[in-house]
Computed example of a mutant assay.
Amino acid sequence: MSDADKVFAGSIPGIYDTYFVPMIFSEYADDIARRVAALAPSALLEIAAGTGAVTRAVAAALPHDFRYVATDLNDPMLAVAARRQGEDHRISWRQADASSLPFGDAEFDAVCCQFGVMFFPDRVKAYAETKRVLKPNGTFLFNVWDRIEENIFAHDATLALGELFPDDPPRFMARTPHGYFDQAIIRADLERAGFRDITIEMRPALSRAPTPDLVAFTYCQGTPMRGEIETRGDLQAATDAVAEAIRARHGSGPVEAKIQALVITARP
């Protein structure tokens, strides 16, 4: 993963929250929220909160008084999350690096993370930090995207951009969001960090959008793939090429395609 893969700035956070969240993240956020609610934590930490899709879902699922700290490495993403959530005395927002969490030992009943661990440069270190801030009987709950071939729109966009830039294809989606799906590696990383009770569940869903153009715009201009495209050629031309590829495969009206994730629960 390159440093550019972690840059969510400029117009990206707004596009991401407006279009990507309903397109691929909302259903999984609701799933995480249901699982967190079942744990009934009195103190919850979210890492890599992004624009707050999980934060909003958990806040709605847990109406009782509890302490919720939502963190992210990227301040622009966290600013969108805080603005979308509005005033909520239960939630505090904090910029934080998952590999060096600014919290005490055994401070939280649960830690959750939606589609964030793929961006961690040292996952074992980040997992060890998560274990450190968890209470001895605490739960770490997170999800990751499955391989890109199981996530059709992302795969369509990557293939289309590969045809447009054959000598140096943009590979952000395959490299990072869809680059950490091997269950044996995930389990081994967690065990190296000190987790022992680990379950991994495959969870398919559908991604929907009103037009192929919106899918293309979201993937090309609402993710760090935007920077990859801009260093290679014209952003709008690339977006149009991806839209045409999706239109050719899925039709010109409302479109839907499979997405798939892994949901992981780990305890010390």
Rank of each mutant, 00 (worst) to 15 (best):
E46W: 10
A49C: 13
A49L: 08
G50C: 07
G50R: 03
T51G: 06
G52H: 03
G52N: 04
A53H: 07
V54G: 05
V54H: 05
R56S: 03
R56E: 02
A57F: 07
V58L: 06
A59E: 10
A60M: 01
L62Q: 11
L62C: 14
P63F: 12
P63C: 09
H64P: 03
D65N: 06
F66W: 13
F66K: 00
R67L: 10
V69Y: 05
A70G: 05
A70M: 11
D72H: 02
D72M: 00
D72G: 06
D72A: 05
L73R: 03
N74L: 12
N74M: 14
D75Q: 15
P76R: 07
P76V: 01
P76K: 13
L78M: 08
L78C: 10
A79V: 09
V80Y: 00
V80N: 09
A81V: 12
A81Y: 15
A81D: 14
A82R: 04
A82N: 04
A82S: 10
G86C: 13
D88R: 15
D88L: 08
H89F: 09
H89L: 02
R90K: 14
R90P: 02
R90M: 13
S92Y: 05
S92M: 08
S92D: 14
W93Q: 04
W93P: 01
R94I: 14
Q95I: 04
A96V: 15
A96H: 14
A96L: 15
A96T: 11
D97K: 14
A98R: 00
S99Q: 15
S100E: 09
S100V: 10
L101E: 12
L101H: 15
P102H: 11
P102K: 11
G104S: 15
G104Q: 13
G104W: 12
G104R: 04
D105L: 11
A106L: 07
F108E: 05
D109T: 10
V111A: 02
C112F: 02
C112L: 10
Q114D: 06
G116P: 05
G116Q: 07
V117R: 00
F119T: 12
F119L: 12
F119A: 07
F120C: 05
P121W: 13
P121D: 01
D122L: 12
D122Q: 09
R123L: 04
R123N: 08
R123V: 03
K125G: 12
K125D: 07
A126R: 05
A126E: 09
A126L: 03
A128P: 01
E129P: 11
K131V: 04
L134R: 03
L134S: 04
K135Q: 03
T139D: 09
T139I: 01
T139H: 00
T139W: 00
F140M: 00
F140R: 01
N143K: 07
V144G: 00
V144D: 00
D146R: 07
D146N: 12
R147T: 06
I148Y: 05
I148G: 01
E149H: 10
E149Q: 11
E149N: 07
F153C: 02
F153Q: 01
A154N: 03
A154S: 14
H155V: 02
H155M: 02
D156P: 02
